[in-house]
Design a protein around this nucleic acid. Structure first.
Length: 103
DNA sequence: CGGTTGACCAAGT
DNA sequence: GACTTGGCCAACC
């Protein structure tokens, strides 16, 4: 499993809790981890050791933008739309409505 | 152990 | 709307 760091492990764990058709933000993940290392969360996704088990394409910026993606935002956007998320000009529509917060 | 980096965030210009 | 500045924190060198 993920034994790189508990930090990364948490990110993947939380992310795996996000159902299809929903999205989360780097901020939400970091906050759920009890930290403010938003960038660190993004780093974990970039290092993404297992893009299969971890739907990193469901993670977006706090503004509702797609942010980045290993395969490019184009691919990320397409994947999200496939799950029922509407995106326009690289921004998610009804972003807050689809946003998932970890409690 | 100090400095740089980064799929970020927020506020200011 | 775009760009700049400051801040945050883990990972890397």
């Amino acid at each position: 499993m993920y034994q790189k760091t508990s930090f990364y492990c948490h990110c993947y764990g939380l992310l795996s809790q996000v159902p299809a058709g929903r999205v989360t933000t780097y901020k939400a993940l970091a906050e759920a981890l009890g930290t403010k290392a938003y960038q660190a969360v993004g780093r974990a996704m970039n290092q993404n050791p297992n893009p299969i088990e971890v739907p990193c394409h469901r993670v977006v910026n706090a503004d509702g933008r797609l942010g980045g993606y290993v395969m490019g935002q184009q691919q990320k956007q397409r994947l999200l739309e496939e799950e029922g998320i509407c995106i326009q000009s690289g921004k998610i529509q009804d972003f807050k409505d689809k946003l998932v917060i970890f409690e």
